[in-house]
Each structure stands twice: as C-alpha cells, then as structure tokens.
C-alpha cells in the first residue's frame, strides 16, 4: 500500500534530530509537526517571522495577528520569538535553519525542484520557496511519486519551471524513501507492500538500487 499523507509526514519526522531548527512548507510538510518523536526537541520556523510555532489554537483563541506562512491561525510555544521578513530570510540564507521540508510537483535526478508554476495554468507565485531551496542546508521533499495520470514526478530533468537547482537531498514519496546522489535517485526504503519493481516502473529518472530494500514500518 502506498503511504498516506500522514505516513509520509510520519516518515519524514524520523529525520528530525534534537536541537534542529526546521521550516515546514505548506501541505504534507505541515503535518510533520504532528509526529515529532518523543525526546526530540525541534523549533519550528515560519518564514513570515516566527521561531517557536505551536499547534493550531483552540476555538475562540484564534488571533488574526498570529499566523503561519500558509496564513493559518497558529499559536506559539514557550521561548518563541517574532521578527521581520528580512531577518527571517536572513536566517534562512545564512544557513541557521537545519532542515527544510517542502512539497514538489517535480524533482529531477540531479536534485532540481519545480513547485511554483504551471505555465498557463497556475500563476500564484513562489512565495519563499526559492529562497528556502537556494540556501537550506538540508532539503527533504514530500511528494506523490506520480501525478494523477500515473506519470512519474521523479524525472531525468524537470519539465516545469524550476524553483531551485541541485538542492534536494532526500525524497519521501508515497512509494519510497530516496536520496538524491551524484548517480541519481538512490532507493533506500519502500512503502509496505510496494515492490521494488513498481518503484522502478514509476521512477522516470535514474534509479540506483543496491542490496536489499527494506519496507518502512509504522
């Protein structure tokens, strides 16, 4: 069975290390906050100007002045700090943020990512994605392995306009965990019940398979 969105988030959460400052993008990446492992302390950065993002508020405690980068109402945790947008992207550019998790429409075998524009269809803008991918030390992409037509989104080269070049380090898709290496996508783990053959078939970019590929456990 391919992973659910929650399971993708859960698997990515295992990559968190104690003391990490983490920026979570909109969509599946946001769900990672729900699965932070016991004993691991991370600080969530929201690029609109907050370190120490907490869970959504309970009803009646929504504060219009307190939102995340997805414009959702949120709360803060003890020890949080507010700052302006230049400082926010300054800390991103300077490499202070340890891990960035974001979604993608396409990733190429050399780590290029496309996630902001579909020419003629979607003209919403890149937001902070280009800044994040250009500077983050470690980028994990959460994505579906294929599009609704069943076509691979892990490609030799991105077709859509790029968000950043040679920046993705790891991909957690609904089918597999893969590292982006100089040799191509290196298969590390597969979703429970998903065969290596299926992953091969659904990966258009170069796929490196070495040894036995274990199933993820949940």
């Amino acid at each position: 069975m391919p992973l659910t969105k929650e399971q993708i988030a859960q698997r990515i959460a295992r990559e968190l290390r104690d003391g990490y400052y983490v920026n979570l993008g909109i969509g599946i990446p946001t769900l990672v906050a729900n699965y932070i492992p016991e004993g691991i302390n991370v600080v969530l950065q929201s690029e609109n100007g907050l370190l120490g993002m907490g869970p959504f508020p309970i009803e009646g405690e929504e504060d219009p002045d307190l939102i995340n980068a997805g414009k959702q109402t949120i709360t803060t945790v003890p020890g949080s700090a507010f700052f302006d947008s230049a400082m926010s992207f300054g800390m991103i550019r300077a490499g202070k943020v340890d891990l960035t998790v974001l979604g993608a429409m396409e990733v190429s075998e050399n780590g290029d990512i496309a996630n902001w524009k579909i020419p003629g269809k979607m003209v919403k803008g890149m937001g902070g994605a280009m800044d994040l991918v250009a500077s983050a030390k470690n980028i994990i992409v959460a994505m579906m392995h294929t599009n609704p037509k069943g076509e691979s989104k892990l490609l030799p080269r991105c077709v859509l306009p790029l968000t950043g070049v040679k920046c993705v380090r790891k991909i957690v898709s609904d089918l597999a965990v893969l590292d982006v290496t100089p040799q191509g996508f290196k298969l590390l783990e597969r979703a429970p019940g998903v065969s290596v053959e299926e992953i091969k078939m659904k990966t258009a970019g170069k796929l490196v398979i070495e040894g036995e590929i274990l199933e993820m456990k949940f």
């Binding site: 959504f56 309970i58 939102i67 414009k71």
Partner: peptide, 11 residues
C-alpha cells in the same frame, strides 16, 4: 483584521 485560514484544533 480578517483571518484568511481559520484553523483550529479540538481541545
């Protein structure tokens, strides 16, 4: 002070 994405959690 409109809220674009009112998001809440259960208590």
């Amino acid at each position: 002070k409109r809220i674009e994405q009112r998001t809440i959690r259960k208590v």
